[in-house]
Design a protein around this nucleic acid. Structure first.
Lengths: 121, 121
DNA sequence: CAAAACCATTGACTTAACTCCATGGTTTTG
DNA sequence: CAAAACCATGGAGTTAAGTCAATGGTTTTG
């Protein structure tokens, strides 16, 4: 599909998609018509964009994401401990979830307070 | 306590603490010695800083945090629906946790793959 | 008591992740 | 077929959340 459709279906702006592609998070190939230079994005780019959104929600930077993706592909590089890298991310995300849940509790408590009318003395 | 101790105990830089104070997230008062202009931070600032870290981990911006804090204090302002605001944050954080957990799963699966030696054909 | 360590203030700088704009070419549509 | 809608590229601008550097005053310490 072309970038306009991808943008509409993913909810991301064209600029964001081009930015992601420049960073190497998604990929496209030249379209069928040789007359233009329009790019074509495969259908599963939508799934990848969802995964990117998940990763971002978990606090990963794009730089980390690129490293993570290279882990999925490579699975064997000398000078890089993939397992250690992944474990470090797992620890980070776990901690972030813990903190998020703690914060969620205080949001709920605050709402509770707001919803409860003050008692007459 | 003075800013140096707060920095050491919280793990945040002085600059960050001053930045937070300028934003209104933490507060201090003039110290005992009238001869200088050193500021004094109450003990429970440390707790507040932990809560701020939780909120940030949950994806809240400082601007939102300030609104949230004002909710805790005020509890009654005409032109502002505190409950709706809090519910919106609750929904956001809930979704973020959901996505984070999904991402955590793929991190764990990736590590599993890496840890499993390829099977001989 | 002097050097080292600390403090406040101001303003410029940095980084990540976009976002906008200008330009010029291509497709689609009424 | 012309206007509207779409596309690519390059580069500048924006925002949030800090970080750094310069200056000048204050405390602590060996």
């Amino acid at each position: 599909m072309r970038i306009g459709e991808l943008s509409k279906r993913s909810g991301l702006s064209r600029d964001t998609l081009r930015f992601y592609e420049k960073q190497g998070l998604i990929h496209s190939h030249a379209g069928a018509a040789a007359t233009n230079n329009y790019r074509d994005y495969p259908e599963d780019t939508l799934i990848q964009l969802e995964q990117i959104a998940d990763a971002q929600a978990a606090g990963m930077s794009i730089a980390d994401l690129i490293l993570f993706l290279s882990q999925l592909e490579a699975a064997d590089s000398e000078d890089f401990d993939g397992e250690a890298f992944l474990q470090a991310r797992i620890d980070e995300v776990t901690d972030r979830i813990r903190r998020s849940e703690r914060f969620l509790d205080s949001l709920r408590r605050a709402k509770q307070v707001l919803a409860t009318p003050p008692t007459e003395p």
